[in-house]
């Protein structure tokens, strides 16, 4: 009988199905690590507010993803958020005095961490902590800021609300200053 080819075909079907399960769990669910796993190092940074930053969010340098957020915790003494990031091992020359900002991609997009390189010749290593950080923008605070400055003086309101818009320069979307106006 042609049982051999039958078994072969069924084997093909079953392995295709199992492969699909794996593809789905690894690509769709965030179980994979950054690019080539194995060579990566971890850095930490403290933020006043992480907004809706989630585990698995990207860490981007000039818009290119270089790592991921691995863990978000709380510093027991300062009550600041401690974010642990895993950076691709091939990016081993990032200056130690770089600063981090929590940014939003697009109006409805996800939050990610943007890294702006500094000038320190000493690069980041496993376990380094980045000192310069800027928190996520919280819409309610912005509206509050906007309203208080608006009632005081109009020109200063515009200036104040434009300030936090700067980090968004890489996007064509207008700064958050206009978002509350919507």
């Amino acid at each position: 009988m042609q049982s051999r080819s039958l078994e072969l075909l069924v084997g093909f079907f079953v392995s295709l199905g199992i492969a699909a399960v794996f593809v789905l769990t690894f690509r769709v669910a965030s179980l994979d690590s950054v690019g080539d796993s194995g060579s990566s190092y971890k850095i930490t940074a403290k933020f006043e507010n992480t907004g809706s930053l989630a585990r698995g969010a990207s860490v981007k340098l000039s818009g290119v993803r270089i790592g991921r957020v691995r863990d978000i915790g709380i510093d027991p003494e300062t009550f600041q958020a401690v974010v642990t990031m895993e950076i691709d091992g091939s990016r081993n020359n990032i200056p130690g005095d770089s600063n981090l900002k929590i940014l939003t991609s697009g109006l409805l997009g996800e939050q990610y961490i943007g890294l702006e390189p500094g000038g320190d010749p000493e690069p980041l290593k496993n376990g380094s902590e980045i000192a310069f950080t800027q928190s996520a923008l919280v819409l309610e605070n912005l509206i509050g800021q906007f309203l208080t400055s608006f009632t005081q003086k109009e020109p200063s309101a515009a200036k104040k609300s434009e300030e936090p818009a700067e980090p968004k320069a890489d996007r064509k979307i207008d700064g958050p200053g206009t978002a509350p106006a919507k």
């Binding site: 789905l24 769709v28 669910a29 965030s30 997009g109 996800e110």
Partner: peptide, 21 residues
Amino acid sequence: DGSYWSQINQAMHGGDICDML
């Protein structure tokens, strides 16, 4: 391509695949 997958990664987790199965 990267944001197609990374956005999916952030919105979904292993539990979704479990629920599907």
